[in-house]
């Protein structure tokens, strides 16, 4: 591992100043569960690492007018176990409880899970169907990025130099919404998802509104609007024909790759299998 400078500032001004230094590779970290193994192999070569866990507000989890505020440094296990999250935003708790293994979930944070911007991360599909808003602070102050605009490619996102994810706003979903996250991996513990699927549905005037997001089958986690429209257009609960059509549309929207974990072909089949399971889960609870 190449040496680097490590700071743990207590205020944003210092943190942002450290991260904004020109000519240096600067990175904010929280749990560092993804970055430390990369640093060890020198696939990640930072000059300056800024630990953001001590910054004010990053460990908050609270109800706000718009819905739920989740501090960026909240860990996966904290989110997975939170009665508040489970009450209305349970699909995020399901995603958070799928990450890595217990020890990793004790350190890994929700901010880190999106900052890493791995296409296979487990919380982004849930955050996509919850239409989360990423709250960011940087040299030019605070800004809000809709989660749909956050991911740009594998390990690429909309953050600019010096910016820190401070938290996520999860808008309160429509009354009666229920969600489900399903994922598959090569083994049951501690393995990256081959495919992840999040589904959220809620009653509307006629029938139901549907949101569907996929992980690990495209360069970024994605929503699948056509599939959502098909499901949402059904007059009541979608029947088998509608579900099959929506699944086909979701598969068509995906762009999976062959890699050591699975072939693209298997990934497409698993989109179908997991999306069906998630829809069935949701229909049972609606």
């Amino acid at each position: 591992m190449r040496p680097f400078d490590y700071y743990k500032p207590k205020d944003f001004q210092e943190a942002i100043a450290l991260l904004s230094q020109e000519g240096k590779k600067t990175f904010p970290v929280a749990g560092a569960t993804d970055l430390i193994p990369m640093a060890r192999d020198e696939r990640w070569l930072p000059d300056i690492v800024v630990d953001i866990k001590a910054l004010p507000g990053l460990r908050e989890l609270k109800l706000i007018d718009e819905g739920l505020y989740v501090g960026a440094a909240m860990t996966m296990n904290e989110i997975a176990a939170s009665p508040l999250v489970k009450s209305t935003w349970d699909v995020l708790a399901q995603g958070a409880s799928s990450v890595g293994h217990n020890q990793v979930r004790n350190r890994a944070t929700v901010g880190g899970n999106i900052a890493t911007s791995s296409p296979a991360a487990d919380t982004p599909p849930s955050l996509l169907v919850l239409e989360a808003i990423v709250v960011v602070r940087g040299p030019e102050g605070e800004r809000r990025i809709p989660i749909t605009e956050f991911f740009l490619g594998p390990r690429r996102n909309a953050l600019k130099k010096g910016e820190i994810i401070v938290g996520l706003i999860l808008p309160t979903p429509p009354e009666g919404a229920v969600g489900s996250y399903h994922r598959i991996s090569r083994r049951h513990g501690a393995d990256l998802a081959i495919v992840g699927v999040a589904v959220l549905a809620y009653p509307k005037a006629e029938g139901f509104g549907w949101r569907v997001a996929l992980g690990a089958v495209a360069p970024t986690p994605i929503r699948v609007p056509q599939a959502e429209a098909t499901l949402s257009a059904a007059p009541g609960k979608p029947d088998e024909a509608v579900i099959s059509q929506a699944i086909q549309e979701a598969v068509a929207a995906s762009r999976p790759i062959d890699d050591i974990r699975a072939t693209a072909k298997y990934r497409r089949e698993m989109i179908a299998t997991l999306m069906r399971k998630a829809i069935e889960d949701v229909l049972e609870k609606l």
């Binding site: 293994h101 090569r186 083994r187 049951h188 513990g189 501690a190 050591i260």
Partner: peptide
């Protein structure tokens, strides 16, 4: 897995021994 004489599974995130859940 080896391809062209190169091992592709030289870490425990790619070479998966069973966990307690497996």
């Amino acid at each position: 897995i080896q391809k062209g004489g190169r091992p592709l599974t030289t870490t425990y995130s790619t070479y998966l021994i069973p966990t307690v859940a497996d």
